[in-house]
């Protein structure tokens, strides 16, 4: 697989959230404002790129039978690192993301890319796949976060746009996540159909 394609496919064509529909749990939970969405995207990108790289590196020496436990060890190591680092250097963001940072460990995107891509491809391709998938994840998550924050709280990245009393609070509550993600999926499908 070409390097460009490894990188490119995760952004729109196989967007993990809006096309593959994996990793929806953190997407629904932390997309209530743009800053949380950005923080989660960075954490997922770090874990995904690192774990893809390491899994690709060790793929020749890893016995098939225990590859899943080994993936989990690799992933959880990087998740714990990002957990410690965020707690130490960005305590506010850490408090806002709550339990969802440790839960990256069971995010299907990460284990899914390790198993479906990194375990079968060279290191460079795997890193590029991680970058592309992370960008796709960030694109979806931040779009949802911005839409929900603007409509539901009248601000974007914490900067007030209009009187929050006018904003539809439901958009920052759980139903707003489902409505936004559904509308975005529909829009992307429509767009892709037109392109084809």
């Amino acid at each position: 697989m070409s390097l460009w394609k490894s990188f490119n496919q995760g952004i729109i064509k196989e967007n993990p959230v809006l096309r593959l529909m994996i990793g929806l749990c953190p997407v629904l939970a932390v997309s209530n404002n743009a800053i949380n969405a950005l923080g989660m995207s960075v954490a997922v990108a770090f874990v995904l790129i690192c774990s893809n790289a390491v899994v690709a590196m060790i793929r020749k020496t890893t016995p098939d039978e225990i590859r899943i436990p080994i993936f989990i060890i690799v992933i959880s190591t990087f998740v714990t690192i990002s957990d410690y680092v965020m707690n130490a250097f960005t305590p506010d963001l850490y408090a806002a993301l709550g339990v969802f940072v440790p839960l990256i460990v069971v995010n299907c995107i990460i284990l899914g890319r390790a198993e479906a891509f990194a375990y079968r491809n060279p290191v460079l391709n795997s890193i590029l796949d991680g970058v592309g998938m992370s960008l796709g994840f960030a694109l979806a998550l931040i779009s949802i976060g911005v839409i929900r924050e603007v409509l539901g709280a009248g601000s974007v990245f914490g900067i007030a746009l209009f009187n929050p009393a006018v904003a539809a609070t439901i958009m920052v509550l759980p139903p707003g996540a489902f409505i936004t993600i559904g509308v975005l999926m529909a829009a992307l499908n429509k767009f892709e159909n037109k392109v084809q």
Binding site: A165, T169, I170, P175
Partner: peptide
Amino acid sequence: AFLLASWPV
């Protein structure tokens, strides 16, 4: 229900 969650006041 949508309106109640959006503009409770």
